[in-house]
Amino acid sequence: MSNLQQQRNDITHIDGNLHQNEAARIGIVVGRFNGFVVESLVDGAIDALLRHGVLGSNITVIRVPGAFELPLVAQRAAESDRFDAIIALGAIIRGSTPHFDFVASESAKGLSSVAIDYNIPVANGVITTDSIEQAIERSGTKAGNKGSEAAMVVLEMLAVLSQLDIDDDYDNDNDA
Rank of each mutant, 00 (worst) to 15 (best):
E79I: 03
R94C: 05
L158Q: 08
A85T: 01
A123N: 05
R51P: 00
I127G: 10
R82Y: 05
D84H: 14
Q7I: 13
E106G: 00
L72N: 00
E106M: 13
A151N: 08
V61F: 01
N124Q: 09
D101T: 05
Q134T: 04
A104E: 07
Q134D: 14
G44E: 08
G53Y: 07
D81N: 14
E22W: 00
L41W: 09
V64P: 00
G53C: 10
A151V: 06
F33K: 04
N9W: 04
T129G: 04
A23H: 12
I93F: 09
T141L: 14
Q6I: 11
R8Y: 11
L155H: 06
I86Y: 01
H19M: 10
V64L: 09
Q6F: 06
L155I: 12
K146W: 07
V160G: 01
D101K: 09
E133D: 11
F102A: 12
D84P: 08
V126G: 12
V122H: 00
I166C: 03
V153D: 14
D117N: 15
D84C: 01
N119V: 10
H13C: 01
D81Q: 13
S107M: 14
G125L: 04
T60I: 02
G147I: 12
R82F: 02
L18C: 03
I120R: 03
F102E: 08
Q6K: 15
T12M: 06
E39A: 04
I136N: 01
I86V: 14
S105A: 14
V122E: 00
T97D: 11
D47S: 15
S148Y: 07
A45H: 08
I11V: 15
A135M: 10
A67L: 05
T129M: 05
G95D: 09
